[in-house]
């Protein structure tokens, strides 16, 4: 178990470093308009790439995952909040599980 404990400590360290380094190093405001625009757009690009196509494999069944994803897209398009969108997707995946 000592081996596993050391491995966990290593994992904690290499997870913390990329989080802390830029956050601590860049304390001045960046001036470049391109970089400022880039950083403002990062969240959308990150979340888009994190979600697709991985969301289709998140339930272990492509059909239920597609139904859940479409539900989430519709609810989000209608401006519903985080909990409603995620809850709606879960409910639809749960129900469609019985069909597919």
């Amino acid at each position: 178990m000592e081996r596993a404990f050391i491995a966990v400590l290593i994992m904690a360290l290499v997870t913390y470093i990329p989080r802390a380094l830029p956050f601590v190093a860049f304390r001045k405001k960046i001036k470049s308009r391109f970089i400022k625009s880039f950083l403002q757009y990062v969240p959308y690009a990150v979340l888009g790439a994190l979600t697709f196509p991985d969301v289709f494999y998140s339930t272990g069944n492509l059909a239920t995952a597609v139904c859940g994803t479409v539900t989430a897209l519709i609810l989000a398009f209608l401006g519903k909040g985080l909990v409603v969108v995620a809850g709606g997707a879960i409910a639809v995946v749960f129900l469609t599980n019985f069909i597919f």
Partner: peptide, 17 residues
């Protein structure tokens, strides 16, 4: 398996509006 989609649902809720 239904719970697996929860966080992706959140991501979608954040980027679509």
């Amino acid at each position: 398996s239904a719970m697996g989609i929860a966080l992706y649902g959140m991501f979608i809720a954040i980027i679509i509006p």
